[in-house]
Amino acid sequence: MVLCLVALPVFAVLSIFSVKYRKLTKEAFDCLFKTVTFRKCRSGLDNRIRAVLTGRIIRLSPGIAKIFYKNYKIFSWVLFILLVWSFYVSFIGIHNYILYGNCNGPESSGFCIFDPTGSNSRISEIDYVIPANITYPVLEDDDPIIGDPKAELTIIEFGCYTCPYTKNAESTVQKIIDYYNGRVNVQFKTFVIPNHPFSTESALAADCALEQGKYYDYHKLLFDNQEKMNYDMLISLAGSLGMNMTQFTNCLEDEKYKFEVQDDTFMGLEAGVPGTPTFFIGKSKVVGPKPFKTFKNIIDEELKK
């Protein structure tokens, strides 16, 4: 009976992968159900499990097999306690996930079963096969640096002004710059997401703002007004920053920085960027608006080098 209790969740998980275990799961469930309703469970499932486990152990050591066979009740209780323990751990995981967005707790950047694609990893994806040989992105003088230009480490971010996940990451980026206080800065490269309206235009507009020395404020305004973005908005935002409007409008209409924007996107593709936002910290790639801790772990390692 106890073995059935242990078997049920184990088989249930295995049955995701194999039909064989679906039948066993059903049997374990039937057995459990009969037991709790005070009926006799005749499937003999626990005996079968015991026999199979004992047989397997015989291969390793008949002595241990004997101990197991004779004391299987104790073993099944131990297994049962382990099971309860694993439930407890899972519960903590869920708890952490709810609080910190990661089931391993606030200090970890590990894989989280509850967030396998996860909101923390969510990006605006592009339909593109990632190249087998990745060319890591490089810093370029013509792209703006956010933060102290003399910092020891530069994070390269591939983002899109009309991507909600890039926007989500903005606060974390700012936090990183503040936290490292001059040791880390960020180079923002525009990565065009073809199915996002105004993805290209806003990227072009940002370069036009850079030309007039208004990049940082414009960059911020683009994200602040992301939901309402349209062509006129690009222009009016420039106006609100007191730019030379003839120069700005010409720049935007002539697609003056078209090749610049394209080059950035290509660089991202070659680097295996699956979507926005994607960050490169040294050779580590961070995909999605991950929590600050995730960045911190990698940055600290990089800074040690």
Partner: peptide
């Protein structure tokens, strides 16, 4: 010893 235990063990072990 249960008969099914015997056959089950021999099956699993060898």
């Amino acid at each position: 010893m249960d008969i099914h235990d015997v056959s089950g063990m021999l099956s699993a072990s060898r």
